[in-house]
Nucleic acid binder design. Structure first.
Lengths: 340, 340
DNA sequence: CGAAGCATTGCAAGCGCTTGCATCGATGAT
DNA sequence: ATCATCGATGCAAGCGCTTGCAATGCTTCG
């Protein structure tokens, strides 16, 4: 039913080869001929068959985007950013949502994007060696966001530095008893981001304890699973401690939201009784007056998309990851600890 | 480099045709042969070339999902739901994000999914006649979520009924002065959902006014663009009115969040001074204690995915849309108006 | 015991596009 | 005017898989 190259060729009075060249804009076609072909194609409403084209060239005009979740704020933003630049470049986006460990296993077992994409993009998902080899074995460019993988281009933020800055802010305000809400144990898909933020927390908090000459409180390190509910629970746990923190640093805004809620329910005021600091600058952080570390999520996605395009047009893989800046956004949830 | 059908055939000592049949599980291959082929394929790590297969069969194993936005709560949930069932069925998902009017125009002009997908899924985006014909002209099944289109299967909720229920709740609490926050004018991509909710609002509010024997306040109908910031602005406008509403019904939770914030900033208490009712049951509605109309978003996506699968395996198009239930979730943001 | 029927398997012709190579004029230099 | 040169175009061989049809070898039935 749909028109083929030959139909256009016949109408334009040239060979299929010429039509193919004319349509793709490759050199070696006379201008007059090209216009004639274009007109014929337009008249017939011709659209190329991606399957045939891809079979002949080996290219697909598609990239595979692999994400752990699509319905989390951070990931949907990332996807949106990536999509924008890919779309502008006329590239289609095949979405692979892992969801959970079994889903992840199935994905890597079947590797459904094999021979379907020109490149793969992995969003904030650390790969194990096997997975990395599998993806690299596709023989297509690989770029990652939020993780560094040998053989892949990557873009990210300075998680450690950003978290240290956040913690220092709390310390400068005068807090000495600072708790952390990060990922729960075991860490779901092997995410490393929570670990990096935790390390930064520890670094600063332990230094403070050392200065004060006392032991860090191990129970201050809690897990909130990067969800609101998890943050609520973590905060409850913290409130039950004999030694209570005067400030809480959450590795994501969602968990900070949960913490805020627990505090409110417990009748504690923020920031008077407890300071809360988040990470992300979620859309609703402003609404909830949450102080947080803002990271340019959509921009990370766009940047990754551009990196991908560069690689697709023959660019070499960068030696070091592109690091985008973060900044502390102070709103109403942090203040000096009350004089008591 | 990658193995082809012939390689497997040689190793298994059969013809390529047999391998093809064996691998796809079509009948007409002896069991012994099939196991031998499977073993050979496994040994070589063979993976079929989707392009070649698709060229030969005309099928792509892919569906196109068309969305106005990916980074809005509602849409990302929908996508997640769809993706889950498609993935389980071994189908890949090509994501097309329209973004805005120009993006939409470009999409329909280029129709990048033409010949790339076995079916298309349109999420909450009303199509104009031309767009519909274009999509239907793909000669592949079309299913929609949140809108009804002739020629397409669809799933949705009873927007009008749900909104009426919401409004009645407010009325039963004793409210007579009820405002509405919906979409701003002009409605971005021609969305009809806001209109349906507005109609329901009007129906109930006007009836109340009629009973009370006075004119409805036209300024009570405001637009919030379905964003938090828009909701804030709309609420500010409402507060500036000489005649003030005692309750506000927002067509989305995000706008309700904005309204809550404006109210808090204005020193007004919710629900004592003003009741606020949202729509969606956003993840954070619980956190903010927002009463709302819950709709089963992920389930809508899954249902649509299943509808798609049914159509792909030859099912006939349903005569009427599948309507999923909604329910009023009462939390702390609605109460009887204060005695004054 | 021969013919017919059936299950297996292989043959080969596509599916629609790309591209190396050959062809054909026309142009420019000698 | 002649020949090398070059740009424009066409030819035809794939790209890797599917599938209608024919061929093959058995089993089964009269």
């Amino acid at each position: 039913m749909p028109e083929k190259l030959d139909d256009v060729a016949r109408l334009a009075g040239v060979s299929a080869a010429t039509v193919s060249r004319a349509l793709r804009g490759v050199p070696g076609v006379a201008d007059r001929t090209r216009t004639r072909v274009l007109a014929a194609a337009a008249e017939l409403g011709y659209a190329i068959s991606p399957a045939a084209s891809s079979l002949a060239t080996g290219r697909t005009g598609t990239v595979g985007v692999i994400v752990p979740y699509v319905d989390r704020w951070y990931f949907s933003r990332l996807i949106s950013g990536v999509e924008r630049v890919l779309r502008d470049a006329g590239i289609s986006l095949l979405l692979y949502n892992l969801g959970d460990a079994p889903g992840r296993a199935r994905f890597f077992a079947g590797l459904p994007l094999r021979r379907r994409v020109d490149a793969a993009l992995v969003l904030s998902l650390p790969l194990n060696e096997i997975e990395r080899e599998l993806l690299l074995g596709l023989d297509t460019p690989l770029v990652t966001i939020g993780t560094e993988e040998p053989g892949a281009d990557s873009v990210g933020i300075d998680d450690h530095g950003a978290a240290v800055t956040a913690m220092r802010h709390l310390v400068q305000l005068g807090h000495r008893e600072i708790a952390f809400i990060g990922e729960s144990d075991p860490i779901p898909l092997g995410f490393t981001t929570p670990l990096r933020r935790l390390a930064a927390y520890r670094e600063v908090y332990h230094a403070v304890c050392r200065e004060d000459g006392r032991e860090p409180e191990a129970a201050f390190e809690t897990g909130g699973g990067f969800t609101v509910a998890g943050g609520e629970r973590a905060m409850s746990g913290l409130l039950g401690l004999p030694r209570r923190p005067t400030a809480v640093f959450a590795a994501s805004d969602e968990m900070a939201f949960g913490a805020l809620r627990t505090l409110r329910r417990a009748g504690l005021r923020v920031p008077e009784d407890v300071s809360v600091l988040g990470f992300d600058d979620h859309d609703l952080a402003d609404l909830l007056e949450l102080s947080t570390v803002a990271q340019p999520v959509a921009e990370l996605g766009e940047r990754a998309g551009r990196l991908l395009l560069a690689r697709l047009s023959g660019g070499k893989i960068a030696t070091s990851p592109a690091i985008l800046g973060t900044r502390l956004v102070l709103r109403g949830s942090t203040a000096p600890p009350s004089a008591r």
